[in-house]
Design a protein around this nucleic acid. Structure first.
Length: 447
RNA sequence: GUGGGUGUAGCUCAAGUGGUUAGAGCACUAGGUUGUGGUCCUAGGGGUUGCGGGUUCGAGUCCCGUCAUCCACCCCA
Protein backbone atom coordinates (compact mmCIF):
# COMPACT_ATOMS: atom_id res chain seq x y z
CA UNK A 1 0.00 0.00 0.00
CA UNK A 2 1.49 3.26 -1.07
CA UNK A 3 0.23 6.36 0.66
CA UNK A 4 0.19 9.90 -0.58
CA UNK A 5 -0.86 13.19 0.89
CA UNK A 6 -4.58 13.92 0.88
CA UNK A 7 -5.90 15.92 -2.06
CA UNK A 8 -5.41 19.63 -1.53
CA UNK A 9 -2.87 19.29 1.28
CA UNK A 10 0.85 19.98 1.19
CA UNK A 11 3.96 18.34 2.59
CA UNK A 12 6.48 20.86 3.82
CA UNK A 13 9.94 19.44 3.24
CA UNK A 14 12.71 21.50 4.88
CA UNK A 15 13.12 23.70 1.83
CA UNK A 16 9.43 24.61 1.77
CA UNK A 17 9.42 24.97 5.52
CA UNK A 18 12.10 27.65 5.26
CA UNK A 19 9.79 29.61 2.96
CA UNK A 20 6.75 29.04 5.14
CA UNK A 21 8.57 30.18 8.25
CA UNK A 22 9.86 33.22 6.41
CA UNK A 23 6.31 34.19 5.44
CA UNK A 24 4.88 33.53 8.90
CA UNK A 25 7.75 35.52 10.39
CA UNK A 26 6.98 38.45 8.09
CA UNK A 27 3.30 38.35 9.01
CA UNK A 28 4.10 38.32 12.72
CA UNK A 29 6.75 41.03 12.48
CA UNK A 30 4.53 43.36 10.47
CA UNK A 31 1.52 42.76 12.72
CA UNK A 32 3.46 43.42 15.87
CA UNK A 33 5.03 46.65 14.71
CA UNK A 34 1.60 48.11 14.06
CA UNK A 35 0.54 47.21 17.58
CA UNK A 36 -1.41 44.00 17.02
CA UNK A 37 -1.43 41.11 19.48
CA UNK A 38 -1.46 37.49 18.33
CA UNK A 39 -4.27 35.12 19.26
CA UNK A 40 -5.43 31.68 18.17
CA UNK A 41 -8.42 29.44 18.72
CA UNK A 42 -9.23 25.76 18.35
CA UNK A 43 -8.77 23.99 15.03
CA UNK A 44 -12.34 22.74 15.19
CA UNK A 45 -15.56 24.26 16.48
CA UNK A 46 -19.22 23.36 16.71
CA UNK A 47 -20.71 23.21 13.25
CA UNK A 48 -23.45 25.65 14.31
CA UNK A 49 -20.86 28.38 14.78
CA UNK A 50 -20.39 28.39 11.01
CA UNK A 51 -23.96 27.76 9.93
CA UNK A 52 -25.10 30.60 12.19
CA UNK A 53 -22.99 33.01 10.21
CA UNK A 54 -23.20 31.62 6.70
CA UNK A 55 -26.29 29.43 6.60
CA UNK A 56 -26.68 25.69 6.07
CA UNK A 57 -25.31 25.92 2.57
CA UNK A 58 -21.84 26.29 4.03
CA UNK A 59 -21.80 22.70 5.25
CA UNK A 60 -20.94 21.28 1.83
CA UNK A 61 -17.88 23.53 1.76
CA UNK A 62 -16.33 22.41 5.01
CA UNK A 63 -14.95 19.32 6.66
CA UNK A 64 -17.46 18.34 9.32
CA UNK A 65 -17.79 15.28 11.51
CA UNK A 66 -19.56 13.90 14.54
CA UNK A 67 -17.76 13.18 17.77
CA UNK A 68 -18.52 10.18 19.99
CA UNK A 69 -21.12 12.14 21.88
CA UNK A 70 -23.03 12.88 18.69
CA UNK A 71 -21.96 16.54 18.58
CA UNK A 72 -21.63 18.07 15.11
CA UNK A 73 -18.19 19.59 14.68
CA UNK A 74 -16.23 21.13 11.80
CA UNK A 75 -12.63 21.99 11.02
CA UNK A 76 -12.35 25.76 10.90
CA UNK A 77 -12.79 27.22 7.41
CA UNK A 78 -12.16 30.81 8.56
CA UNK A 79 -11.34 32.78 11.67
CA UNK A 80 -14.10 35.35 11.97
CA UNK A 81 -16.62 33.15 13.84
CA UNK A 82 -13.97 32.07 16.33
CA UNK A 83 -12.85 35.67 16.72
CA UNK A 84 -16.43 36.80 17.26
CA UNK A 85 -16.96 34.07 19.84
CA UNK A 86 -13.77 34.89 21.71
CA UNK A 87 -14.45 38.62 21.71
CA UNK A 88 -18.05 38.06 22.78
CA UNK A 89 -16.95 35.97 25.75
CA UNK A 90 -14.92 38.89 27.12
CA UNK A 91 -16.52 41.80 25.30
CA UNK A 92 -16.80 43.97 28.39
CA UNK A 93 -13.39 43.17 29.79
CA UNK A 94 -11.25 43.77 26.71
CA UNK A 95 -9.81 47.26 26.21
CA UNK A 96 -10.89 48.87 22.96
CA UNK A 97 -9.91 48.97 20.26
CA UNK A 98 -9.11 45.29 20.10
CA UNK A 99 -6.20 44.91 17.68
CA UNK A 100 -5.59 41.21 17.12
CA UNK A 101 -3.99 39.07 14.45
CA UNK A 102 -3.65 35.34 13.81
CA UNK A 103 -1.83 33.08 11.36
CA UNK A 104 -3.91 29.89 11.56
CA UNK A 105 -4.44 27.01 9.19
CA UNK A 106 -7.87 26.56 7.63
CA UNK A 107 -9.71 23.73 5.93
CA UNK A 108 -12.17 23.96 3.08
CA UNK A 109 -13.68 21.04 1.19
CA UNK A 110 -13.39 22.75 -2.15
CA UNK A 111 -11.90 21.55 -5.37
CA UNK A 112 -8.22 22.52 -5.40
CA UNK A 113 -6.86 24.71 -8.17
CA UNK A 114 -4.12 27.27 -8.63
CA UNK A 115 -3.92 29.38 -5.49
CA UNK A 116 -6.57 27.33 -3.66
CA UNK A 117 -6.01 24.26 -1.54
CA UNK A 118 -7.97 22.33 1.06
CA UNK A 119 -5.61 23.20 3.86
CA UNK A 120 -3.87 26.54 3.86
CA UNK A 121 -2.56 29.27 6.11
CA UNK A 122 -4.12 32.67 6.32
CA UNK A 123 -3.05 35.87 7.99
CA UNK A 124 -6.00 37.50 9.74
CA UNK A 125 -5.82 41.09 10.97
CA UNK A 126 -8.75 42.74 12.74
CA UNK A 127 -9.53 45.90 14.66
CA UNK A 128 -12.71 45.68 16.71
CA UNK A 129 -14.45 48.30 18.77
CA UNK A 130 -13.19 51.51 17.20
CA UNK A 131 -16.25 53.77 17.17
CA UNK A 132 -17.28 57.03 15.54
CA UNK A 133 -14.44 59.05 14.03
CA UNK A 134 -11.98 56.36 15.08
CA UNK A 135 -13.57 53.94 12.60
CA UNK A 136 -11.77 55.61 9.76
CA UNK A 137 -8.48 55.53 11.66
CA UNK A 138 -8.96 51.79 12.13
CA UNK A 139 -9.82 51.34 8.45
CA UNK A 140 -6.67 53.21 7.48
CA UNK A 141 -4.52 51.22 9.88
CA UNK A 142 -5.79 47.92 8.50
CA UNK A 143 -4.94 48.95 4.98
CA UNK A 144 -1.59 50.26 6.19
CA UNK A 145 -0.71 46.85 7.64
CA UNK A 146 -1.57 45.13 4.36
CA UNK A 147 0.51 47.60 2.36
CA UNK A 148 3.40 47.38 4.80
CA UNK A 149 3.54 43.64 4.27
CA UNK A 150 3.32 43.86 0.49
CA UNK A 151 6.00 46.54 0.34
CA UNK A 152 8.25 44.71 2.81
CA UNK A 153 7.91 41.51 0.81
CA UNK A 154 9.17 43.40 -2.22
CA UNK A 155 6.01 44.13 -4.22
CA UNK A 156 6.19 47.49 -5.96
CA UNK A 157 3.17 49.73 -6.66
CA UNK A 158 3.52 48.59 -10.28
CA UNK A 159 3.07 44.97 -9.22
CA UNK A 160 0.27 45.25 -6.72
CA UNK A 161 -2.39 47.78 -5.76
CA UNK A 162 -4.92 48.11 -2.98
CA UNK A 163 -8.32 48.76 -4.48
CA UNK A 164 -10.57 50.52 -2.05
CA UNK A 165 -14.26 51.27 -2.04
CA UNK A 166 -17.12 51.45 0.43
CA UNK A 167 -20.37 49.53 0.72
CA UNK A 168 -21.85 52.48 2.60
CA UNK A 169 -20.92 54.76 -0.27
CA UNK A 170 -22.45 52.35 -2.76
CA UNK A 171 -25.64 52.31 -0.68
CA UNK A 172 -25.71 56.11 -0.76
CA UNK A 173 -25.29 56.13 -4.51
CA UNK A 174 -27.94 53.48 -5.06
CA UNK A 175 -30.33 55.49 -2.91
CA UNK A 176 -29.66 58.56 -5.04
CA UNK A 177 -30.50 56.49 -8.10
CA UNK A 178 -33.69 55.32 -6.42
CA UNK A 179 -32.74 51.67 -6.19
CA UNK A 180 -34.79 50.10 -3.39
CA UNK A 181 -32.92 48.82 -0.32
CA UNK A 182 -34.01 45.22 -0.93
CA UNK A 183 -32.33 45.32 -4.33
CA UNK A 184 -28.99 46.49 -2.93
CA UNK A 185 -27.42 43.05 -2.24
CA UNK A 186 -28.23 41.79 -5.73
CA UNK A 187 -26.91 45.02 -7.19
CA UNK A 188 -23.65 44.66 -5.25
CA UNK A 189 -23.21 41.20 -6.73
CA UNK A 190 -23.81 42.66 -10.16
CA UNK A 191 -21.19 45.38 -9.62
CA UNK A 192 -18.75 42.81 -8.31
CA UNK A 193 -19.06 40.82 -11.53
CA UNK A 194 -18.45 43.75 -13.85
CA UNK A 195 -14.74 43.14 -14.35
CA UNK A 196 -14.97 39.37 -14.14
CA UNK A 197 -16.98 38.68 -17.25
CA UNK A 198 -17.33 39.90 -20.85
CA UNK A 199 -19.20 43.17 -21.26
CA UNK A 200 -22.08 41.65 -23.29
CA UNK A 201 -22.74 39.04 -20.59
CA UNK A 202 -22.70 41.72 -17.92
CA UNK A 203 -25.01 44.03 -19.88
CA UNK A 204 -27.42 41.13 -20.32
CA UNK A 205 -27.45 40.46 -16.58
CA UNK A 206 -27.96 44.16 -15.98
CA UNK A 207 -31.02 44.20 -18.25
CA UNK A 208 -32.53 41.28 -16.38
CA UNK A 209 -31.82 42.76 -12.95
CA UNK A 210 -35.17 44.50 -12.76
CA UNK A 211 -33.92 48.05 -12.37
CA UNK A 212 -34.91 50.87 -14.70
CA UNK A 213 -32.97 51.66 -17.90
CA UNK A 214 -31.95 54.97 -16.37
CA UNK A 215 -30.60 53.22 -13.30
CA UNK A 216 -28.84 50.72 -15.56
CA UNK A 217 -27.05 53.50 -17.36
CA UNK A 218 -25.86 55.10 -14.12
CA UNK A 219 -24.76 51.73 -12.77
CA UNK A 220 -22.65 51.11 -15.86
CA UNK A 221 -20.86 54.38 -15.19
CA UNK A 222 -20.36 53.54 -11.54
CA UNK A 223 -19.06 50.04 -12.04
CA UNK A 224 -15.34 50.02 -12.47
CA UNK A 225 -14.91 53.80 -12.16
CA UNK A 226 -11.50 54.45 -10.64
CA UNK A 227 -9.59 57.37 -9.18
CA UNK A 228 -10.54 60.84 -10.43
CA UNK A 229 -13.20 59.42 -12.73
CA UNK A 230 -14.88 57.73 -9.77
CA UNK A 231 -15.02 61.03 -7.89
CA UNK A 232 -16.57 62.76 -10.91
CA UNK A 233 -19.19 60.02 -11.30
CA UNK A 234 -20.03 60.15 -7.62
CA UNK A 235 -20.44 63.91 -7.59
CA UNK A 236 -22.72 63.72 -10.60
CA UNK A 237 -24.76 60.99 -8.97
CA UNK A 238 -25.11 62.84 -5.67
CA UNK A 239 -26.46 65.85 -7.62
CA UNK A 240 -29.30 63.76 -9.03
CA UNK A 241 -30.83 63.47 -5.57
CA UNK A 242 -32.76 66.23 -3.89
CA UNK A 243 -31.48 65.19 -0.47
CA UNK A 244 -28.07 63.61 -0.95
CA UNK A 245 -26.49 62.06 2.12
CA UNK A 246 -22.79 62.18 1.35
CA UNK A 247 -21.58 61.05 4.78
CA UNK A 248 -20.02 57.82 3.49
CA UNK A 249 -18.39 59.71 0.65
CA UNK A 250 -16.87 62.17 3.11
CA UNK A 251 -15.65 59.28 5.24
CA UNK A 252 -13.99 57.62 2.27
CA UNK A 253 -12.27 60.88 1.35
CA UNK A 254 -11.05 61.15 4.95
CA UNK A 255 -9.67 57.63 4.67
CA UNK A 256 -7.55 58.66 1.69
CA UNK A 257 -6.30 61.71 3.62
CA UNK A 258 -5.08 59.32 6.31
CA UNK A 259 -3.53 56.93 3.79
CA UNK A 260 -1.58 59.79 2.25
CA UNK A 261 -0.38 60.85 5.71
CA UNK A 262 0.71 57.28 6.42
CA UNK A 263 2.75 57.29 3.23
CA UNK A 264 1.05 54.40 1.45
CA UNK A 265 -1.15 56.29 -1.00
CA UNK A 266 1.03 55.17 -3.91
CA UNK A 267 -0.28 51.63 -3.42
CA UNK A 268 -3.92 52.68 -3.00
CA UNK A 269 -6.53 53.38 -5.60
CA UNK A 270 -10.18 54.30 -5.20
CA UNK A 271 -12.12 51.75 -7.23
CA UNK A 272 -15.91 51.56 -7.26
CA UNK A 273 -15.72 48.10 -8.84
CA UNK A 274 -14.54 46.59 -5.56
CA UNK A 275 -17.48 45.10 -3.71
CA UNK A 276 -16.29 41.78 -2.27
CA UNK A 277 -18.52 38.75 -2.32
CA UNK A 278 -19.33 38.69 1.35
CA UNK A 279 -22.76 39.80 2.41
CA UNK A 280 -21.74 41.12 5.81
CA UNK A 281 -19.51 44.01 4.77
CA UNK A 282 -21.10 47.33 5.59
CA UNK A 283 -18.44 50.02 5.14
CA UNK A 284 -15.00 50.16 3.62
CA UNK A 285 -14.09 47.21 1.41
CA UNK A 286 -10.66 46.64 -0.10
CA UNK A 287 -8.49 44.07 -1.77
CA UNK A 288 -4.85 43.78 -2.75
CA UNK A 289 -4.76 43.03 -6.43
CA UNK A 290 -1.79 41.49 -8.19
CA UNK A 291 -0.98 42.92 -11.60
CA UNK A 292 1.14 39.93 -12.64
CA UNK A 293 0.27 37.43 -15.36
CA UNK A 294 -2.31 35.92 -13.05
CA UNK A 295 -4.43 38.89 -12.05
CA UNK A 296 -6.22 38.17 -8.84
CA UNK A 297 -6.84 39.32 -5.31
CA UNK A 298 -4.02 38.52 -2.89
CA UNK A 299 -6.02 39.60 0.10
CA UNK A 300 -9.42 41.05 0.87
CA UNK A 301 -11.18 42.69 3.71
CA UNK A 302 -13.53 45.36 4.91
CA UNK A 303 -15.67 46.73 7.67
CA UNK A 304 -18.36 44.62 9.27
CA UNK A 305 -20.59 46.68 11.55
CA UNK A 306 -23.15 44.06 12.49
CA UNK A 307 -21.33 40.77 12.31
CA UNK A 308 -20.39 40.49 15.97
CA UNK A 309 -23.85 41.35 17.26
CA UNK A 310 -25.31 38.85 14.80
CA UNK A 311 -23.05 36.24 16.39
CA UNK A 312 -23.82 37.29 19.93
CA UNK A 313 -20.76 39.46 20.22
CA UNK A 314 -22.30 42.72 21.31
CA UNK A 315 -22.67 45.92 19.33
CA UNK A 316 -19.07 46.17 18.21
CA UNK A 317 -18.02 47.21 14.73
CA UNK A 318 -14.92 45.69 13.25
CA UNK A 319 -12.63 45.95 10.27
CA UNK A 320 -10.21 43.33 9.08
CA UNK A 321 -8.65 41.41 6.24
CA UNK A 322 -7.35 37.96 5.41
CA UNK A 323 -4.38 36.97 3.27
CA UNK A 324 -3.78 33.39 2.20
CA UNK A 325 -0.31 31.90 1.98
CA UNK A 326 -0.93 29.98 -1.24
CA UNK A 327 -1.56 32.97 -3.48
CA UNK A 328 1.05 35.16 -1.81
CA UNK A 329 3.77 32.55 -2.26
CA UNK A 330 2.60 31.94 -5.81
CA UNK A 331 2.78 35.63 -6.68
CA UNK A 332 6.10 36.16 -4.88
CA UNK A 333 7.57 33.26 -6.85
CA UNK A 334 6.25 34.68 -10.10
CA UNK A 335 7.88 38.03 -9.38
CA UNK A 336 11.14 36.49 -8.18
CA UNK A 337 10.74 37.88 -4.70
CA UNK A 338 11.12 34.67 -2.71
CA UNK A 339 14.17 34.56 -0.47
CA UNK A 340 16.79 31.83 -0.68
CA UNK A 341 15.28 28.69 0.80
CA UNK A 342 18.51 26.78 1.40
CA UNK A 343 19.23 25.23 4.76
CA UNK A 344 21.41 27.29 7.00
CA UNK A 345 23.19 26.58 10.25
CA UNK A 346 25.62 28.62 12.32
CA UNK A 347 28.66 26.43 12.24
CA UNK A 348 30.18 23.12 11.28
CA UNK A 349 32.99 21.23 12.95
CA UNK A 350 35.34 19.44 10.57
CA UNK A 351 37.96 17.07 11.90
CA UNK A 352 41.28 15.82 10.66
CA UNK A 353 41.95 12.13 10.75
CA UNK A 354 43.66 11.71 14.09
CA UNK A 355 41.01 13.49 16.14
CA UNK A 356 39.37 11.49 18.89
CA UNK A 357 35.57 11.41 18.48
CA UNK A 358 35.20 12.04 22.21
CA UNK A 359 37.03 15.35 21.82
CA UNK A 360 34.94 16.24 18.80
CA UNK A 361 31.78 15.63 20.80
CA UNK A 362 33.05 17.82 23.64
CA UNK A 363 33.64 20.72 21.27
CA UNK A 364 30.29 20.24 19.54
CA UNK A 365 28.55 20.17 22.89
CA UNK A 366 30.22 23.46 23.92
CA UNK A 367 29.16 25.14 20.70
CA UNK A 368 25.61 23.84 20.88
CA UNK A 369 24.74 24.02 24.52
CA UNK A 370 27.03 26.71 25.95
CA UNK A 371 27.05 29.06 22.97
CA UNK A 372 23.63 28.11 21.64
CA UNK A 373 24.86 27.75 18.06
CA UNK A 374 23.16 25.60 15.45
CA UNK A 375 26.02 23.27 14.80
CA UNK A 376 26.63 20.18 12.68
CA UNK A 377 29.43 17.70 12.15
CA UNK A 378 29.92 14.57 10.10
CA UNK A 379 29.12 11.12 11.49
CA UNK A 380 31.57 9.64 9.03
CA UNK A 381 35.32 10.00 8.90
CA UNK A 382 35.76 11.39 5.44
CA UNK A 383 38.28 13.73 3.91
CA UNK A 384 38.53 17.29 5.14
CA UNK A 385 37.60 18.43 1.65
CA UNK A 386 34.27 16.62 1.79
CA UNK A 387 33.54 17.95 5.25
CA UNK A 388 34.22 21.50 4.09
CA UNK A 389 32.01 20.92 1.07
CA UNK A 390 29.21 19.69 3.31
CA UNK A 391 29.65 22.72 5.55
CA UNK A 392 29.38 24.95 2.51
CA UNK A 393 26.22 23.17 1.36
CA UNK A 394 24.65 23.91 4.74
CA UNK A 395 25.48 27.59 4.33
CA UNK A 396 27.23 27.82 7.69
CA UNK A 397 28.75 31.08 8.84
CA UNK A 398 31.65 29.43 10.63
CA UNK A 399 33.76 26.39 10.08
CA UNK A 400 35.83 24.99 12.93
CA UNK A 401 38.69 22.76 11.91
CA UNK A 402 39.90 20.40 14.57
CA UNK A 403 43.33 18.86 14.26
CA UNK A 404 46.23 19.23 16.56
CA UNK A 405 45.24 22.89 16.46
CA UNK A 406 41.76 24.38 16.46
CA UNK A 407 41.11 26.87 13.68
CA UNK A 408 38.12 29.04 12.90
CA UNK A 409 37.19 29.93 9.38
CA UNK A 410 34.66 32.58 8.45
CA UNK A 411 32.96 31.02 5.45
CA UNK A 412 31.77 34.31 4.03
CA UNK A 413 35.06 36.23 4.16
CA UNK A 414 37.27 33.15 3.81
CA UNK A 415 39.46 34.41 6.63
CA UNK A 416 40.88 31.83 8.99
CA UNK A 417 42.23 32.35 12.51
CA UNK A 418 43.86 30.21 15.13
CA UNK A 419 41.66 29.53 18.14
CA UNK A 420 44.03 27.34 20.13
CA UNK A 421 47.42 25.77 19.57
CA UNK A 422 46.47 22.68 21.56
CA UNK A 423 43.15 21.42 22.77
CA UNK A 424 43.20 20.51 26.42
CA UNK A 425 40.16 18.68 27.77
CA UNK A 426 41.87 17.53 30.97
CA UNK A 427 40.59 20.25 33.30
CA UNK A 428 37.40 22.23 33.68
CA UNK A 429 39.46 25.42 33.74
CA UNK A 430 40.91 24.67 30.31
CA UNK A 431 37.44 24.07 28.96
CA UNK A 432 36.22 27.38 30.39
CA UNK A 433 39.22 29.09 28.81
CA UNK A 434 38.38 27.59 25.41
CA UNK A 435 34.74 28.56 25.79
CA UNK A 436 35.49 32.22 26.49
CA UNK A 437 37.96 32.28 23.60
CA UNK A 438 35.30 30.90 21.24
CA UNK A 439 32.69 33.25 22.59
CA UNK A 440 34.97 36.20 21.94
CA UNK A 441 35.97 35.12 18.44
CA UNK A 442 32.51 34.14 17.26
CA UNK A 443 30.95 37.19 18.87
CA UNK A 444 33.41 39.60 17.26
CA UNK A 445 33.34 38.08 13.83
CA UNK A 446 31.34 40.14 11.40
CA UNK A 447 28.30 38.32 10.10
C1' G B 1 -20.97 19.55 -9.14
C1' U B 2 -19.48 20.71 -14.94
C1' G B 3 -15.72 20.83 -18.90
C1' G B 4 -10.65 20.20 -20.69
C1' G B 5 -5.19 18.90 -20.39
C1' U B 6 -1.49 15.60 -18.31
C1' G B 7 0.42 10.84 -15.88
C1' U B 8 7.77 7.08 -17.63
C1' A B 9 13.39 7.14 -11.46
C1' G B 10 12.95 11.95 -5.86
C1' C B 11 13.07 16.23 -9.97
C1' U B 12 13.40 17.74 -15.47
C1' C B 13 12.71 14.93 -19.67
C1' A B 14 14.07 10.73 -23.71
C1' A B 15 12.51 5.96 -25.92
C1' G B 16 10.69 7.07 -35.57
C1' U B 17 4.40 4.71 -37.64
C1' G B 18 3.38 -1.10 -31.41
C1' G B 19 9.16 -4.71 -31.69
C1' U B 20 15.21 -7.33 -27.71
C1' U B 21 17.07 -6.20 -21.11
C1' A B 22 12.80 1.46 -20.70
C1' G B 23 17.62 5.65 -21.01
C1' A B 24 20.10 10.64 -19.81
C1' G B 25 21.06 14.95 -16.75
C1' C B 26 20.37 16.66 -11.82
C1' A B 27 19.79 14.68 -6.88
C1' C B 28 21.14 10.57 -3.52
C1' U B 29 24.86 6.60 -1.69
C1' A B 30 29.86 4.55 -1.69
C1' G B 31 34.96 4.86 -3.16
C1' G B 32 39.12 7.74 -5.20
C1' U B 33 41.91 12.42 -6.17
C1' U B 34 46.22 12.63 1.27
C1' G B 35 43.00 16.34 2.48
C1' U B 36 40.23 23.90 3.33
C1' G B 37 34.48 25.77 -0.64
C1' G B 38 29.05 22.95 -3.67
C1' U B 39 34.81 20.47 -8.32
C1' C B 40 36.61 16.21 -10.99
C1' C B 41 36.92 10.67 -11.77
C1' U B 42 34.72 5.75 -10.86
C1' A B 43 30.92 2.74 -9.23
C1' G B 44 26.12 1.94 -7.11
C1' G B 45 21.02 2.11 -5.47
C1' G B 46 16.59 3.52 -7.28
C1' G B 47 10.93 1.93 -12.32
C1' U B 48 5.31 -3.71 -12.05
C1' U B 49 6.03 3.20 -17.43
C1' G B 50 -0.29 5.81 -11.80
C1' C B 51 -3.66 1.40 -11.27
C1' G B 52 -7.07 -2.32 -13.60
C1' G B 53 -8.89 -4.51 -17.85
C1' G B 54 -8.98 -5.09 -23.31
C1' U B 55 -6.87 -5.52 -28.57
C1' U B 56 -2.25 -8.04 -30.32
C1' C B 57 2.55 -13.07 -31.54
C1' G B 58 4.21 -8.64 -28.86
C1' A B 59 1.77 -2.47 -25.37
C1' G B 60 5.50 2.94 -22.16
C1' U B 61 3.12 3.48 -27.19
C1' C B 62 -3.64 1.74 -29.33
C1' C B 63 -8.86 1.26 -26.76
C1' C B 64 -12.03 1.34 -22.21
C1' G B 65 -12.43 2.14 -17.07
C1' U B 66 -10.43 4.06 -12.67
C1' C B 67 -7.29 7.04 -9.60
C1' A B 68 -4.14 11.16 -9.17
C1' U B 69 -2.76 15.91 -10.70
C1' C B 70 -3.16 20.65 -13.24
C1' C B 71 -6.31 24.42 -15.65
C1' A B 72 -11.08 26.76 -16.32
C1' C B 73 -16.31 27.20 -14.58
C1' C B 74 -19.35 27.26 -9.90
C1' C B 75 -18.03 29.16 -5.26
C1' C B 76 -14.93 32.12 -2.55
C1' A B 77 -15.36 33.18 4.41
Amino acid sequence: MKFQNVKGTRDFYPEEMVRRNWLMGMWRKISRRHGFAEYDGPTFEYLELYTAKSGDGIVSELFNFEDRGGRQLALRPEMTPTLARMVAARANALPKPIKWFAVPNFFRAERPQRGRLREFLQWNVDIIGAAGEAETLADAECILVAVDFLRSAGFSPEQVEIRISSRALLAELLNCLGVENERHPATYTLLDKKEKQPDEVWQEELRRSGITPDQQQHLTQLAGARGAEAHRVIQNTLKTSTSPDGAAYAQLQQLFVYLRALGVADYCVFDLGVVRGLAYYTGVVFEAYSKGTLQRAICGGGRYANLLSAMGGGALSGVGFGMGDVIVLDQLAEMNLLPDSALSFDCYVAVEEQVDTVHLLKLVSLLRMKLGLACNYSYKSTSLKKQVAEAASQQVKYLLIMGTQLQLKNMQSGQQQLVAEHLDWSTAAAETELLSRLKQMLGNSPD
